[in-house]
């Protein structure tokens, strides 16, 4: 998709679980491991708290990419939350793909509290993917993004 607006910057929402990924993001911060400012983090207690509704809402409101980060499988602070998240989001992403929101715009990544470098690397990769995909125009008729 061609980028029409030369000033376009991707809008990326990152849901991070409080115990692993949010702490991993903090570690990336204190380690000064940079990633683009386009990524804005929302703290949730667990990746299983991410309601598919939130992701749909983000795209509806003009997000270009949504990433959900949680504890590694088996390491969930709440024992099994990330497994629920994995199943739910697999279904959701496949549906979004059907609707025309490319697979690349949605991602799930497991980042532990000790993986600041992985958090930063993941975010850099994700922003690059979204930048290559360009502006998200799907769900455009109901989105509230200013043109």
């Amino acid at each position: 998709m061609s980028v029409t607006n030369p000033n376009w910057k991707p809008k990326i929402v990152a849901f991070c679980c409080n115990w692993c990924s949010y702490a991993g993001a903090d570690l990336a911060g204190s380690g000064r491991m940079s990633y683009p400012a386009d990524v804005k983090i929302i703290r949730v207690p667990c990746s299983c708290r991410v309601n598919p509704m939130f992701i749909l809402r983000a795209f509806e409101r003009g997000a270009d990419g949504v990433i959900i980060c949680g504890c590694h499988p088996g390491d969930c602070h709440y024992t099994s939350g990330n497994y629920y998240a994995r199943r739910r989001l697999t279904m959701l992403f496949s549906m979004l793909d059907y609707l025309g929101i490319e697979r690349g715009r949605t991602r799930v990544e497991w980042v532990s509290a000790a993986e600041g470098a992985k958090f930063s690397k993941t975010m850099n990769e994700f922003v690059e993917t979204i930048t290559n995909l360009g502006e998200n125009r799907k769900l455009g008729d109901i989105r509230c993004k200013k043109s």
Partner: peptide, 16 residues
Amino acid sequence: GFSNKQIMAEVDQICL
């Protein structure tokens, strides 16, 4: 503390 409304409000604000 992490209600649907609260998280949605954050999403809306970030995507504005």
